[in-house]
């Protein structure tokens, strides 16, 4: 049994989708975490959902990154706790300094809302544990600021997912936002904090027409069972 927490900020709008996947698809315990909460005791993994927290004012994720709950997330991550930020959650983690880099406006200046293919680049993290190296996942994206740029070179984080074509080739036409190295998702060096622009919670059930996202959530459960957790 793995206990999940889903953070809700003013303006989050994928929070219920995340909660639903954990509750109904993974059938694991799941709790709401509020933006002013200062304690994450009792959860093993924190999900930071997509949306437009605080209206995306100033910069996407900038205000949410400076709320009390993010101090708690920072401590949780330092102790080895698992954190997954999806879309706006990825932007928040970068703004909070928990992931290296920044998400800029898409190079096209357009909101990108369609299915994208991503290639799995590393399987030695809890979030990709049950996936195959080089596997191609079809996951929807919906963002205006997903153009990832690293803070320094060489890049200090780890690349987990890259935009590719249906065959897994990294080609410019498959990069929807101009991201450096076609990055769709990254981890910190330690591998316990992950951010990704694609929305796995939107494609985790057959009734939704796509199920490639569930492998990321199931990876967490497999890792939890095989490795036996971490010292929090």
């Amino acid at each position: 049994m793995m206990r999940f927490g889903v953070i809700r900020f003013h303006g989050s709008n994928c929070d219920r989708d995340c909660y639903h996947v954990v509750d109904r698809v993974l059938q694991q315990p799941v709790y709401w975490i509020e933006q002013n909460q200062k304690d994450l005791a009792g959860v093993d993994v924190v999900l930071i959902p997509g949306g437009f927290s605080y209206g995306d004012y100033l910069r996407a994720g900038a205000i949410a990154a400076r709320t009390p709950v993010m101090d708690a997330v920072r401590e949780f991550a330092e102790r080895g706790g698992l954190v997954l930020g999806i879309c706006n959650g990825f932007q928040i983690l970068c703004e909070a300094g928990l992931l290296p880099g920044a998400l800029m406006v898409n190079a096209s200046l357009r909101f990108a809302c369609h299915f994208a293919h991503v290639r799995v680049e590393a399987v030695d993290t809890p979030f990709t544990w049950a996936l195959s190296p080089g596997a191609v996942l079809r996951i929807p994206i919906a963002h205006h600021q997903g153009n990832f740029q690293p803070d320094v070179t060489p890049f200090q984080g780890r690349v987990l997912f890259r935009y590719c074509d249906a065959e897994g080739h990294i080609v410019p036409a498959a990069n929807p936002n101009g991201s450096w190295e076609a990055v769709a998702g990254i981890a910190n060096g330690r591998g316990n904090v992950v951010g990704m622009m694609p929305h796995p919670e939107r494609c985790s059930e057959a009734v939704l027409g796509a199920t490639d996202g569930v492998g990321i959530f199931r990876s967490l459960l497999c890792w939890w069972e095989e490795v036996g957790g971490y010292d929090v």
Binding site: L58, R59, R66, A102, M104, Q149, D151
Partner: peptide, 8 residues
């Protein structure tokens, strides 16, 4: 602390 993102 807030107004600028020093990365970019």
């Amino acid at each position: 602390q807030l107004l600028a993102n020093p990365v970019i």
